[in-house]
Design a protein around this nucleic acid. Sequence first.
DNA 1: GGCTGGTACTGTATCGATACAGTACCGACG
DNA 2: CGTCGGTACTGTATCGATACAGTACCAGCC
Lengths: 359, 359
Amino acid sequence: MGRRVTLQTLADELGVSRTTISNAYNHPEQLSDELRDRILTTAERLGYAGPSAAGRILRTGRHHAIGVVFTDDLRFVFTDPDTTTFLQGVAEACADAGTGVVLLPSPVAMPVDQTALPHAAVDGFLLFSAAEAHPAVQTVIARQRPMLTVDEPDLGAAASFIGIDDRGAATTLTHHLMSLGHERIGAVTLPMSVDRLDGAGRRDLAAATGSPVRVVRERVLGVLDTGVEPVVWEAGANDPDAGRAAALELLRAHPEVTAVIGFSDQLAIGVTQAATRLGLDVPGDVSVVGFDDIPRASTWDVPLTTIRQPLVEKGRLAASELLAMIDDERAPSRHDLPIELVVRRSSGPARAHTSDSSN
Amino acid sequence: MGRRVTLQTLADELGVSRTTISNAYNHPEQLSDELRDRILTTAERLGYAGPSAAGRILRTGRHHAIGVVFTDDLRFVFTDPDTTTFLQGVAEACADAGTGVVLLPSPVAMPVDQTALPHAAVDGFLLFSAAEAHPAVQTVIARQRPMLTVDEPDLGAAASFIGIDDRGAATTLTHHLMSLGHERIGAVTLPMSVDRLDGAGRRDLAAATGSPVRVVRERVLGVLDTGVEPVVWEAGANDPDAGRAAALELLRAHPEVTAVIGFSDQLAIGVTQAATRLGLDVPGDVSVVGFDDIPRASTWDVPLTTIRQPLVEKGRLAASELLAMIDDERAPSRHDLPIELVVRRSSGPARAHTSDSSN
DNA sequence: GGCTGGTACTGTATCGATACAGTACCGACG
DNA sequence: CGTCGGTACTGTATCGATACAGTACCAGCC
C-alpha cells in the first residue's frame, strides 16, 4: 500500500492497458477523446504527476537536455559578458527545441569526479572556452556523447568546433594600428595556464606562440604575420582588473609602446584604466583595441575599437549544431564565424616618437 | 552483435557479476583493488563509457540535478545582473554538492508543454521571480517535486520561499528620503503584468496595492506605511531603458516630485538618465534611490543610494534549502534575508519647493 | 573441531516507461 | 457476402542499472 502512482496504477484503476495511459500523454491521436479525458481526470484525482522522466529516459535513450561545461571559476562564468551573452544564444536555441540546458561547472579546485560531470544526464556536451589540459575535457570525451567545443580546445575530428578566425582577426587589428602609424605594439593576453592563477606577467614570443591556449597562440601568430613583434604580457584573469594590472606593468616597462591590443574587451577596458592612471591619454598617447565587442565596449568612457564577433549567434549555432549531432547523427563539423573590425575612439594616430632613451 | 557496451557486457567478458562491475564504479571499497583495476582496464579496452545515467536515475530515483525556472524573456535572464548574480550563488552551492543546474526558460510566448518543463529530469525546482499567473507555475506544481520560490510568487505551504522584507525595505528607503526633506515622491515600479509587455504607464494606488506581483504590492505598501502617497509609474521591463521611459513621463507629468524610488537599480539608473535628459541634476533637483545594490550601482555616474540585498547568498541559500528538501525531506521553509540601506550620492536634501503652478 | 566475524563477491527483484507488433471491431463497398 | 482499411486499443519485450539479501571462503581463536 501507499505505493507511488504510476502508469500501472492508472491502468488498473481504469481497466485499460498501461500503453493506453502512456498514449494519452504522448500520442493523443491514438485514442478517443472520451477515453483520454477520463484518463486525465482520473490522473488528477489520484494525484498522478505525469509519466516519470526516469522511465522515459531509460526507454527512449533521450534526455532532452544538453550540458554546458565550464572550466572557469564560477566567479567568472556569470559575470563575464562573453559567457552570459553566449549562454543567451544557447538558451534561445534550446528553448526553441524544448531542450533543457544543464550548467556543468568544473572549477579547477574541485576533483572532476566530485562534479556532476561524470553522471550528468545529458545527450551531448558543449564546452565553452575550456582549457585543453583541464581534466574535465578527458572526462567528457570518455562519456562518448556528441560534443562541441567553442573557441577552445580544438579536438579535431573528435568534436565539432566553433570559433572565429583568430589569427586573421589579430592581423586585421594590427594592420589597423599600423595604418595609424603604430610600430611599437603591446599585447595583453588572456591567461595561458589551466588554472589561470599563477600566470600573470611578461612572456617572450616563444612562450606566447607555444601557449597551450589556442586563442592566445593564434592571435599572437596573427600579429606576427604583419611583421610586428609585440611586447606580450599575460593577464591573470579575463576581467578589467587583471587587464589593468598587466597593462600597468607593460606600459611602465615599455614606454615606447604606442598601442596595446587587449585579447578581450574586458582586458582592453582594464588597459585604458591603466593608461589613465599613468597619465596617458587614450588614444592621444596610447591606442587601445580589444576583441569581442561586448555591449560595454561601445558605452565605455573611451569607446573601444574592437573585433566584433556575434556572440548570441555563436551560442545559437553551437546549440543547434549539437542538437543536429544528437538528433540527426550529424558528423562533427567546423565553423568559423564572420568577424568585423569596429573602429571607435580608442584607436588613433600614433604619437610622435618619444626618445627611446627616455627609460 | 554491435550492441552497446553495458555493465553486462563487462560482466560477461570478465566472468563476474553485473553487480561487481557496478561496485567497481560506485563502491570501490566493496571489491579488491586487483579486480577493480582489471575491470577498469577492460572497460577502457571495450570502450565502456561508464554506468549509464538513465539506468542509474531509474533505479535510484535521483537525478542529481535541480531545475531553475525563468518566466522572463530570455533576453533578460542573462543580461539582468540580479539574475546572473543569483545564478552564480545557485551554481556555487550546486557545484559543492555535485549537483547539476538545469536552466528551464519558459518564455511567455511559448506554450508550456513545448518547453522542457513538463519532462525535465530534475529532483526539484527553483522558481526565480516568476509571475504567479504564469502557466509554468502550475506545471511545476503538478510535477509534485520539492519546490522553492525566490521573491515571487509566495505559494504558502506548498513551497519554500526566500525573499527580503520588501515592505520594510520600502519603508526604510522612504524614511531616508523624508529625513532629507522630500515630500513628493515618485515610484517607478517593476512590471505588474504576467507578460510584461502591455504594462508601462501611470498607475493609481489601488492598482499598485492590488498588483498580482507581490514585490510591487509590498513595496508600495511599504511606502504608504510612512504616510507618503507616491506617484506610481509602471515600467515596461526591468532594464534602464524602460526605467528611463517611465521616469521621463513621470517627471514631466509631476514636476513637483523631488525624489523617485526605482524598484530596482536597473530602473533607478534609467531614472537618473531621464532626469539628466530633462536638465535636472541628481541629487540637486531630484533624488533617486533603487533596490538590490547591483555592482553597477556603485560605479554608475551617480552612485546610487539603494537597498543592498545579498544576491549571491540568496542563490546559495535557495539551492541549499532545495537540496535539503530533496535529500533530507525537509519541510518547506521561509526565509527573509537581511537587507541594508546603502547611502550614496544619488540622494540628497530636497530642493526648495517649486511653485506647483509651474506646469 | 566448531564457532565468529570479516571480506569479497553473486543473484534476484525492481525502478517506470515506451516501441512495436498484433488484434478486435466496425462500417463501407463492390 | 467477403474483404478491405482504418480506428482504438492490448501485450510483451526491453531499456541499464543498483539495492539488498545472501553465500562462500578464510583466518583466528578457544
